[in-house]
Structures are given as structure tokens and as C-alpha cells.
């Protein structure tokens, strides 16, 4: 998951226009990512900080690289979603080496793998990664009559897509399946259309993601991550034989995302630093946040107000002295 999202977010980081954060009178500045769970979390923090500590915080849209630069200089106080190990290089630079940024110890676990619609799992028996190498089962996924099933493995630009190709090759289902690369909106709309007509579909996926709330989706089981069996050579490293030199017949490693904040906050507002260190969002909550903003198109601030009201005891617990 991480490779893909890190790519996407680095792009965001370089293209998002940073608003002026010096011209307002707010007590704190929260960097607001432009993906839905990050946007929701930024607003939940804004509402909670006002409620618990009477502090005014501005949630300012900005990309990750700019946010880290701001955390480093003190122009930004909080970043709600920092993905690890994706952003390990930024963590080394600012947390380990410069010591200007802190990472909350609580992480939300993120998952990546191959998913199936419930029709594919229940009616056609595609439940384990090895089922994708069974031509009798994958025939149900053939949409163009060539005998091979089709599956979407990610966007062309995601580095995770290359790794999914390596995994398909290592597991052997590259022989029974045609691997499709398309933008995420195309892949997700294909899931929507398959579900609307009870057609089976298998696709690359990651969680937290709204697809798990939109549809009844099954994660294919596979052998757990094993660093010794995860040998990835990227096309950029070896353009001609990256695929033959790579091998990864195991599941992805688990990633986590954390809240980050400027270390200066420990002195300026120690109660806020303590609060941030205790926040423990669950993956299901992240899916609900994304669903509310992305599918139901709820206003992020109003959603945050309701979330904080509904989770009052928990928020109070995080804020306890």
C-alpha cells in the first residue's frame, strides 16, 4: 500500500498550493491532506482542540513535503496522517536527525493485497491467492473470451502496481490472469458495475478504503509477509530483467499511519502533545470517515463536530491530564 500511496502523496505534496499560514491569529495550524480520511482527521483534531483546550486551530490544505517543512520551522503544528514506512526518509530527516518533529506512538494499521467481490468468493470459490492459479475458477473472471481472467492491479503510475506484477509472476497467476493497469477511478467503477450486476471480479486493493463500505468485499488470504522472501527489483533499477530477478510469493508487509507534530508543541502546549500521543483511530473508523466525506459528501467540519460529540468519552480520555 505504502509504495502507491507514498507516490500519490508525494505528487500531492509538490502540487498543492500552500496557503499563507502566517497571516491569521489561530493558536495552532493543522496541515490538511487532500484525501478524505486525512481531511476528516484534521477537522476532528480542530474540533477536539477547541472543545478540550479552548484552542483555535486552522486546518490548512497542504501537501506532505510542505507540511513537514512547516513542522520543521514551527509554521505548522500538526499533521494528521503520516504513512510509514512510506515516509521513512522524511522521518529520518526531521524526527531522527533534526529532532524537530515528533511522531505519535499510536499507528493505524493499513493493509494491502488482492480482493474479490462476494460473488467471486462465494459462487466461484476464489478465496485464497492460490485460487487465481486455478483456470477452472478464473474462467469466471474472463470478460473477453480469451480463456484468461482479467484483474485490475492498480494505476500505471503507482509503484505498487509493479510489485503486484511481480507477485502475480511469483505466485504463478500471471499465466491464468491478464493484469490490467488503469487509473483508480476506472478500477473502482469496474467494481461498482460488477456489483450492480452480480458479476464476479478480482482486483488489487488496500484498506482503509471506501470500497469496503460500498460493497461486500473479501480479502484473499495468502502467506504472511516474510522479509526473506520479499525480493523486489524495480524497473528503474534494472529495466531489462527486473521481473525475472524479483520474487515475492508472500503477502505485503503491514503499514501504519501516525499523527505527527512539531516537537516545539511539547513545550508550547504539552497538554496537546500528550493528547495527540493518545489518539488511537481504528481502521474501520478511517473507512467511515472516508465514506462520509467521499461517498456521502458530508461537510468535513460538520462531520467532525458530530464525530467528536458521538465519541465524547474517548476524546475526553485522550485529553485527560
Amino acid at each position: 500500500m505504502t509504495a502507491r500511496r507514498s507516490f500519490r502523496r508525494l505528487i500531492l505534496a509538490t502540487t498543492t498550493v500552500m496557503l499563507s499560514v502566517g497571516a491569521h491569529a489561530a493558536d495552532l495550524v493543522i496541515a490538511m491532506p487532500n484525501w478524505s480520511s486525512g481531511e476528516a482527521t484534521a477537522n476532528i483534531l480542530k474540533v477536539s482542540l477547541k472543545k478540550e483546550f479552548g484552542l483555535d486551530a486552522d486546518a490548512v490544505p497542504m501537501g506532505t513535503l510542505i507540511a513537514f517543512a512547516g513542522l520543521n520551522t514551527g509554521e505548522v503544528d500538526i499533521h494528521p496522517e503520516v504513512w510509514l514506512p512510506n515516509l521513512d526518509n522524511l522521518v529520518k530527516k526531521y524526527v531522527t536527525d533534526a529532532g524537530t518533529v515528533a511522531i505519535s506512538p499510536m499507528g493505524v494499521p493499513a493493509w494491502q493485497g488482492i480482493c474479490a467481490t462476494s460473488v467471486a468468493a462465494d459462487k466461484y470459490g476464489i478465496k485464497n491467492i492460490s485460487d487465481l492459479s486455478d483456470p477452472k475458477k478464473t474462467a469466471s473472471l474472463d470478460t473477453d473470451g480469451d480463456g484468461k481472467g482479467e484483474m485490475w492491479i492498480g494505476a500505471e503510475t503507482w509503484s505498487s502496481t509493479t510489485i503486484e506484477r511481480i507477485r502475480a509472476n511469483s505466485y504463478g497467476y500471471a499465466r491464468t490472469m491478464r493484469l490490467l493497469e488503469m487509473p483508480e477511478d476506472v478500477g473502482m467503477a469496474a467494481v461498482d458495475a460488477a456489483e450492480a450486476t452480480d458479476r464476479p471480479m478480482v482486483f488489487g486493493c488496500y484498506a482503509p478504503h471506501v470500497v469496503f463500505k460500498l460493497h461486500d468485499i473479501v480479502r484473499l488470504t495468502e502467506p504472511p509477509f516474510d522479509a526473506a522472501k520479499w525480493k523486489i527489483v524495480l524497473p528503474s533499477e534494472d529495466p531489462s530483467s527486473w521481473l525475472s530477478k524479483s520474487s515475492a510469493a508472500v503477502g505485503w508487509d503491514t503499514a501504519h499511519y501516525h499523527i505527527a507534530y512539531a516537537n516545539a508543541l511539547r513545550e508550547k502546549h504539552p497538554e496537546v502533545a500528550r493528547f495527540l500521543d493518545r489518539i488511537d483511530f481504528k481502521p474501520e473508523e478511517a473507512i467511515d470517515m472516508s465514506y462520509a466525506l467521499q461517498v456521502e459528501r458530508q461537510d468535513p467540519y460538520k462531520f467532525a463536530e458530530q464525530w467528536v460529540a458521538k465519541n465524547e468519552d474517548r476524546v475526553n480520555g485522550w485529553a485527560k491530564p
Partner: peptide, 22 residues
């Protein structure tokens, strides 16, 4: 028809395989 999606109302989705336009 029932059609659960994260796409905005007004978006067109073409499924050539099943011969439907949503």
C-alpha cells in the same frame, strides 16, 4: 437501478462488456 459508487451524480460509467451505460 441500484448503483453504489463513490463517483459523483452526473458521472457516466460505460460497461462495454455488459452493454450498459450508467
Amino acid at each position: 437501478v441500484k448503483f453504489r459508487t463513490a463517483e459523483r451524480p452526473g458521472t457516466i460509467i460505460i460497461d462495454g462488456n455488459q452493454h450498459f451505460l450508467y
